Computed example of a mutant assay.
Amino acid sequence: MSRAAKITVDLDAIRHNYRLARSLNSAGHAVAIIKANAYGHGAVEVAKALEAEADAFGVACIEEAVELIDAGIEKPVLLLEGYFETSELDYISEQGMWCAVHSLAQIEQIAAASLSKPITVWLKMNSGMNRLGVHPDDYQAAFKRLKQLENVADIVLMTHFSSSDELDKTTTDEQLAVFNRASEGLDAPHCLANSAAVLAWSDARRDWMRPGLMLYGATPFPDAQDNADKLIPAMTLTSEIIAVRDVKVGESVGYAGLFCADQPTRVGTVAMGYADGYSRHAVTGTPVWINGHRSRIIGRVSMDMLGVDLTGIPDADIGTEVEFWGRNVTAAEVATFCDTIPYTLFTGITRRVHKCYINK
């Protein structure tokens, strides 16, 4: 008998969400972003589920790419952060990886490398996020330099948006304008759209898209959005009640007595805590789903356990399953109660939480 904390990943939901991205730009291509262990969903399993349909896969670093290659994944793998040491270029070349390049110095390193075959470069522009990327003023020269190199096969022009999830801001339009000006006349495909831009910014979809969060069924937006409303959550986080008690008015629950009952309250203790990846910042009132009822967390989340309100749910008892997020309570909603975003919830799940897959 093992601890009941688990995540269930619906691979059909991930396939549906990828197809939604492709349907929004049927003439373009989509790199399925599976960095950070597919946002906690399992990179190899997700890649295998999507390989028949995905045009390519995106990861953060070479270690993540190696995991896919060793698992037999044959679709191209894009290194979104590029390489970190010039010694990686040999392996990138041998394996046919695609590689983001974000500085003029890297271009000269590629020029000086002795490679077995030329590589595909995704030339990143800093269009305003000020994180990675070639300055717009240098972009034309960077492209022309890459075109001269025998070590470079193909080039894709890319940038990244800082605020595409904020639909009332002009930031994305401003970044698009910067990118358009700096790349004018360059004969190469474009890749601009992350999940929020795929869903909401039609001018950003271009030749390639980079759906990430949306693959896993979570919306990047704080409010309803037509395309995001079609997403299907892929991860369900559950555990079971391991103890039940009745708490009187004035009695507290959990560390520091943060919850004090103002009415007779039936409390369930659940095998789930921050060592499983459930946020310690979840406050009393954070929603959960129990036996067809919407309920709430009460008290402070501890390392291995937390409390839920069973008042008015008479059929809930020891062994009853509690859903912390999934199709009944979305990760995006839970994130608002934890002062965070769905990304951190998904990627924070720890190794002691059992993982199972359906609809392989």
Results as ranks from 00 to 15, higher is better:
residue 253 V to L: 12
residue 278 Y to H: 04
residue 295 S to V: 00
residue 147 K to A: 10
residue 6 K to Y: 06
residue 279 S to D: 08
residue 197 A to Y: 04
residue 357 Y to H: 02
residue 269 T to P: 04
residue 251 E to Y: 08
residue 341 I to Y: 12
residue 77 V to H: 01
residue 152 V to Y: 01
residue 260 C to M: 14
residue 159 T to N: 05
residue 136 P to N: 10
residue 38 A to V: 09
residue 90 D to I: 14
residue 110 I to M: 03
residue 60 A to C: 04
residue 257 G to P: 13
residue 80 L to M: 09
residue 321 E to F: 01
residue 179 F to K: 09
residue 214 M to K: 01
residue 280 R to V: 14
residue 328 N to A: 07
residue 122 W to R: 12
residue 247 V to K: 00
residue 85 E to W: 11
residue 16 H to R: 06
residue 110 I to T: 05
residue 12 D to H: 15
residue 99 C to D: 04
residue 237 L to E: 04
residue 346 F to I: 01
residue 88 E to S: 13
residue 124 K to G: 01
residue 196 A to V: 08
residue 92 I to F: 08
residue 101 V to M: 08
residue 226 D to I: 14
residue 287 P to E: 11
residue 334 V to W: 07
residue 147 K to L: 06
residue 80 L to W: 12
residue 103 S to A: 11
residue 140 Q to D: 10
residue 334 V to T: 07
residue 54 A to N: 05
residue 263 Q to D: 02
residue 345 L to A: 02
residue 268 G to T: 09
residue 236 T to G: 12
residue 249 V to L: 05
residue 332 A to L: 02
residue 138 D to P: 02
residue 291 N to W: 00
residue 99 C to M: 03
residue 28 G to H: 11
residue 171 T to M: 01
residue 314 P to H: 03
residue 227 N to F: 03
residue 306 L to K: 03
residue 83 Y to L: 03
residue 65 A to T: 08
residue 51 E to G: 08
residue 350 T to Q: 13
residue 25 N to S: 14
residue 106 Q to R: 09
residue 75 K to W: 09
residue 206 R to M: 10
residue 16 H to Q: 09
residue 131 R to N: 13
residue 300 R to E: 11
residue 157 L to T: 13
residue 84 F to C: 05
residue 168 D to H: 11
residue 289 W to A: 10
residue 59 V to R: 14
residue 107 I to W: 00
residue 298 I to N: 05
residue 16 H to C: 11
residue 258 L to K: 15
residue 18 Y to S: 04
residue 335 A to G: 06
residue 340 T to L: 02
residue 250 G to E: 04
residue 61 C to T: 07
residue 270 V to A: 03
residue 345 L to I: 11
residue 170 T to I: 05
residue 193 A to W: 11
residue 17 N to P: 14
residue 320 T to Y: 03
residue 203 D to C: 05
residue 146 L to T: 11
residue 303 M to T: 11
residue 189 P to N: 01
residue 135 H to F: 12
residue 31 V to A: 02
residue 190 H to C: 03
residue 167 L to H: 03
residue 328 N to G: 03
residue 65 A to W: 00
residue 26 S to P: 15
residue 46 V to G: 00
residue 128 G to K: 07
residue 293 H to P: 00
residue 141 A to Y: 13
residue 172 T to R: 10
residue 327 R to D: 08
residue 127 S to A: 04
residue 343 Y to T: 13
residue 317 D to W: 02
residue 92 I to V: 15
residue 150 E to C: 02
residue 71 A to C: 11
residue 85 E to G: 08
residue 106 Q to I: 01
residue 7 I to E: 05
residue 130 N to H: 15
residue 228 A to I: 10
residue 324 F to R: 07
residue 34 I to H: 02
residue 95 Q to K: 15
residue 135 H to K: 15
residue 308 V to N: 01
residue 170 T to K: 14
residue 50 L to Y: 09
residue 40 G to N: 03
residue 340 T to S: 01
residue 230 K to A: 06
residue 286 T to L: 11
residue 239 S to V: 10
residue 344 T to G: 07
residue 265 T to A: 12
residue 242 I to C: 13
residue 241 I to L: 04
residue 298 I to L: 15
residue 242 I to N: 11
residue 4 A to S: 15
residue 146 L to F: 10
residue 144 K to R: 09
residue 92 I to Q: 00
residue 90 D to S: 14
residue 301 V to C: 02
residue 107 I to L: 05
residue 230 K to T: 11
residue 291 N to H: 10
residue 294 R to V: 06
residue 163 S to V: 05
residue 119 I to W: 00
residue 117 K to N: 04
residue 350 T to F: 02
residue 176 L to Q: 00
residue 254 G to N: 07
residue 159 T to V: 06
residue 182 A to T: 12
